[in-house]
Design a protein around this nucleic acid. Sequence first.
DNA 1: TCGTGTGAAGACGTTCACAGCT
DNA 2: AGCTGTGAACGTCTTCACACGA
Lengths: 222, 222
Amino acid sequence: MGKDQIPGKTIYRLSIYHRCLRRLEDAETLTISSSALAKAAGVNPSQLRRDLTYLGTFGTRGLGYSVQELTTAIGGILGRAHLQPVILVGAGNLGAALLRYGGFHKEGFEVVAAFDASPEAVAQRGIAVPVYHASEMPKIVEEFSIRLAILSVPVEQAQAVANDLVRAGIQGILSFSPTVLQVPENVTVNSVDLALELEQVSLFVKSTDSALLDPQSEPPTP
Amino acid sequence: MGKDQIPGKTIYRLSIYHRCLRRLEDAETLTISSSALAKAAGVNPSQLRRDLTYLGTFGTRGLGYSVQELTTAIGGILGRAHLQPVILVGAGNLGAALLRYGGFHKEGFEVVAAFDASPEAVAQRGIAVPVYHASEMPKIVEEFSIRLAILSVPVEQAQAVANDLVRAGIQGILSFSPTVLQVPENVTVNSVDLALELEQVSLFVKSTDSALLDPQSEPPTP
DNA sequence: TCGTGTGAAGACGTTCACAGCT
DNA sequence: AGCTGTGAACGTCTTCACACGA
């Protein structure tokens, strides 16, 4: 089929642009230039323009882009029509915090249920989401046709629980375990390893005085 | 100076290899082949070997790598000699969870102090780290020569607090705010945007049936 | 004049494929 | 036979630089 697929990195940046644009909409800005938006998003202006060409032609030469048009165009690609349901597995320390985190909802996700090995213990205040025993997970995933899961169980259990999720029909996992999960290739895993991210910062800081590393790409300093 | 700098992406993977190797050490494995380690780390064997050439020659042809030697060699690059002190700013929902998170310590970091606008409110159980008022931050950063900070304040305050951190002498920031922080170029920022990461998973999941995106790079399915 | 859209160039990262050591 | 180390090919991403439109 069409060879005009959008590269993964562009998709990632489109999400960032979309965030910035929504903030501009709130500020009732009407138009913005590639360089201004690029600065807000922490990228090079050329890159921004290149990324936008995947959507078609939206800018007005000599003026910039219509904030509203651009927001709609990117929103169309990202498909934020309705709230995506998500489950969370492992309502421990980090998991409970994620349940209280408002950021997911703001980006169009609704955590509809949480699961834990001992749900009673999670009866902490401030958690509005129902917490079930882990054994109930497959039933609920099927009942509500849920495709996304947040995995925040201890490392030792991560692979086993991931297997359960895949078996239950989950197609995308956001994992917080410091392990590489082995899953079938039709399942998408995105791993956020908090300690590793901190380590990267630390390495690039040291690099300034020891000059051993290449201050490139990933850790951005915009 | 030497032109043989190690690329950022390789550094990132070296951290992953190091983790895997330590796990192998615990399991008392003596040697491992590039393909086995690559599988555990979720990368291509060629890539692993290429990455390792930045460290020199460590493998034994026909056999593989000595787990211990490799661990030491990578550890040397990553410089995990002693515990790095870190502060955390913003001990709210997510921040408090990070304070209780053991993963940082396991990777060689010690969160020595936390700061919040209302430290009294953070007098929750289970937090071993002292929590000070935000105004005390510069003093403590200087006193203990701290270079790294974890930033987990609400979005609206993120840039202002980041400015404070930079002014206090912090050189590396791990931020959890969904904004691009503007900092001087001698300061490293690594931004972990939880909602964005979840969104990426969602987009790559949808891509399987709508076939619009390029299932490439970033979201790994090893 | 200002800022977009884009060919072309360049830098970077990944993977192949195989020579060579054990 | 097995597996590393690496030249070379390939593919991807980024940036430059400038023509063109408003």
